[in-house]
Amino acid sequence: MSKTYIVPSDINELNTLEDKLQLLKDIKRSFSVYRIDCGSCNGCEIEIFASITPMWDPERFGFKLVANPRHADILLCTGPLTRHMYYPLLRAYEAAPDPKIVIAYGACGCTGGIFHDSYSTWGGIDKVIPVDVWLPGCPPSPATTIFGLATAIGVLEQNLKRVDHKDGGVKPPVIEESFFGNTLFERDIVSKTKVLMGYLHGRILYKKYVDAVKKSTDIYNPVKVKYELIEAIKNESDPRYKECMQIIHNDVYLKHLKTYKSIDDTNPALSFTKEEMDEIYG
């Protein structure tokens, strides 16, 4: 959608950067915030109300939610600006006394976020009205909200700066030597851990599994490797890791071992049996 709203000249004249800085100086530590929901999914609203609880207490530095844009110094706009909220936003914007500070709240308010290419949104508050502070996050946590408000009134300085990396050369990062003699083994464990436990816990699982296998005196001997895994499983308290380590052993380790020597992977001395897996959950 193209820009159709042109800020009226009387509002424009009263909203120069100097005016805004003067306003911030004048209101010091007492500012009224009017919250406009421009079609947000309500996640942002919940976080705004989480941040005005006693846990975070923004009234310490004068933050106060007001019920009317005519009382407001700061407009807090959430949501990607849906078509239906276009006129209500403009009415609130024009009703707020000049000069006014506009905060685009959440990923949606900043750029449209996850809804940026939807047919029914404008993709950000700044597509329609001038915005002064961008507060990203989906939704911004209360800490981010407090930081954003403190930045808006100048209590804190922003600490993000545009970064442009250049001339990184052509040298790729060094790949570690495989302890199995084949990096495909590590690759398969990494992908299996991600499938089993996701990227965050998968990384922990990977470390636990590899540490256990490395302890074995001969990593090409499945009986010894299984013994080390049983030891590691005994010391592990979380049943999810226990089960996943067994699955990796059966599905990845034994498969790769077959490229080195012929083994019978149904042999219970080498692989984990169904009974052993069930045992974990007692």
């Binding site: 950067l17 900043c110 700044d126 915005v131 002064d132 502070v133 961008w134 507060l135 990203p136 996050g137 911004p140 946590s141 800490a143 981010t144 930081f147 954003g148 930045t151 808006a152 804190l156 922003q158 600490n159 993000l160 700066k161 545009r162």
Partner: peptide
């Protein structure tokens, strides 16, 4: 988590 910027979206 301190990601807010003021007056310049490029940041």
């Amino acid at each position: 988590f301190e990601t807010a910027v003021r007056f310049n979206k490029e940041d």
